[in-house]
């Protein structure tokens, strides 16, 4: 039992401290949105709200390829999320619940690949993608994100999961594939939600890989386009901030609705290290 009085000087000091931290985290984003409505050439605190306009937004939509970039980001991210559920689930199930020769050595290889940062394999991956004729394709942006991390995560989850339920399914004369889809997959729901959120952020914010293999404007994702926007219009602050605000909206909206799962999902990536 806490018997302390709640409103001690310590409490007020802590309150000020966390309020400052929260403000410092949020204010830059508020500033981003405010600047996006202006055509300021000199930046300052003093916003003239009467001069706010949507000019920058209409420029982003009309003159830049924003809709194309948005479409590319959405397609790449959605397909990556779906595949990163299906393919690792299957492998994780086999690793967790089936016996086969060389299983533990095989899984060691999976774990070892987790220690390879994607930047290390960038150059050979570029050659492989080029040799496969996949330059400037969605496929090339999607496939490398389906890695051992999902397998590792789901296997951890399945390991703690009793075999008896599966045996019950077997008695009912369930086929292996049907049992996986009807019994195992529904039980993995919570871990899959975390994995999807983690994958969503990774894919949406991915930069170096799409920069290297998808430079053509018609396949460029939003994050790559943002960097281009900044280098092409460096002094048009309002325009750059309008593009940035729009690119931030999808992850931000999902974050607002799925906060708890979001935090869990992203914190999971800590295991990856």
């Amino acid at each position: 039992m806490r018997t302390h009085k709640k409103y001690t000087p310590q409490y007020w000091a802590a309150l000020v401290l966390v309020l400052i931290a929260a403000l410092v985290s949020v204010v830059p984003f508020v500033y981003m949105v405010l600047v996006s409505f202006t055509q300021m050439e000199i930046l300052s605190f003093n916003f003239d709200f009467s001069e706010f306009s949507l000019v920058n937004y209409s420029t982003v939509f009309r003159n830049l390829d924003f809709m194309t970039n948005l479409k590319n980001s959405v397609i790449v991210t959605v397909i990556t999320c779906i595949l990163n559920c299906i393919i690792p689930s299957m492998a994780a199930y086999a690793f967790a619940k089936k016996q086969f020769p060389g299983k533990s050595k095989f899984f060691m290889v999976y774990l070892a690949t987790l220690m390879i940062p994607s930047q290390v394999t960038l150059i050979p991956m570029f050659f492989i993608v080029r040799a496969l004729g996949l330059m400037n394709t969605y496929t090339a942006m999607i496939l490398p994100l389906i890695n051992a991390f999902g397998v590792f995560l789901i296997k951890q989850f399945l390991d703690s999961f009793p075999d008896e339920l599966l045996e019950a399914g077997r008695i009912d004369g369930c086929g292996e594939n049907r049992m996986f889809v009807t019994i195992v997959v529904p039980l993995m729901k919570s871990v899959l939600v975390s994995l999807v959120i983690f994958t969503f952020i990774t894919s949406w914010n991915n930069f170096l890989w799409p920069l290297v293999i998808a430079s053509k404007p018609n396949v460029q994702t939003l994050t790559v386009a943002l960097a281009t926007l900044k280098s092409n219009y460096s002094t048009n602050y309002g325009l750059v901030m309008a593009g940035s605000t729009l690119a931030f909206l999808p992850p931000f909206i999902i974050y607002i609705f799925l906060q708890r799962q979001f935090v869990e999902g992203i914190a999971l990536s800590g295991i990856k290290g």
Binding site: V26, P28, Y31, I201, M241, S244, Y255, I266
Partner: peptide, 26 residues
């Protein structure tokens, strides 16, 4: 609130802070 910067891309953060840290920025 403190988690919001985590979900933004590094590219976006770079754009944003370039403007915040401008010689005549906020």
């Amino acid at each position: 609130a403190m988690f919001i910067p985590v979900i933004a891309s590094m590219v976006l953060i770079g754009n944003l802070w370039t403007i915040i840290l401008e010689p005549h920025g906020i």
